[in-house]
Design a binder for these strands. Structure first.
Length: 106
DNA sequence: ATGGAGGCGCACA
DNA sequence: CTGTGCGCCTCCA
């Protein structure tokens, strides 16, 4: 059973709509832990697949796919996002200004 | 209880 | 805009 903090992270991630992305810091801020972005990343690392969480829509503050334990997942994450219409630039980054999910979209 | 580590963020150079 | 350093918060040994 995941900790309550992680449960909250999952709850937020689960609400991210298709074609949108959010940053770790953003999630942390919504959970009232503006400096716990790192912990959000940890929570994602332990993301239980049975919850079908759209973890691939979570990027770092730069709009790029963070390094993951399993390198293969990085490519998988990118494919999933592209399938949702998210475009990556030559540097493997997306335009947060255009795809970032904001509170207004909730 | 203490120390180390982790899918990060922000300030600076 | 990129690279480096330090800080925040929680989990695990």
């Amino acid at each position: 059973m995941a900790s309550e903090f992680q449960e909250q992270v999952y709850a937020v991630v689960a609400e991210i709509p298709c074609g949108k992305v959010v940053t770790y810091g953003q999630i942390a801020a919504w959970l009232n832990r503006p400096r716990a972005a790192r912990q959000v990343g940890y929570a994602m690392a332990a993301c239980p697949r049975e919850r079908q969480l759209p973890w691939h829509r979570v990027l770092n503050a730069r709009g790029e796919v963070s390094r993951r334990a399993n390198p293969g997942d990085e490519e998988y994450q990118r494919l999933l996002l592209e399938a949702e219409g998210v475009v990556f630039d030559a540097n493997g980054r997306v335009s947060l200004a255009r795809y970032q999910w904001t509170a207004d979209d909730r």
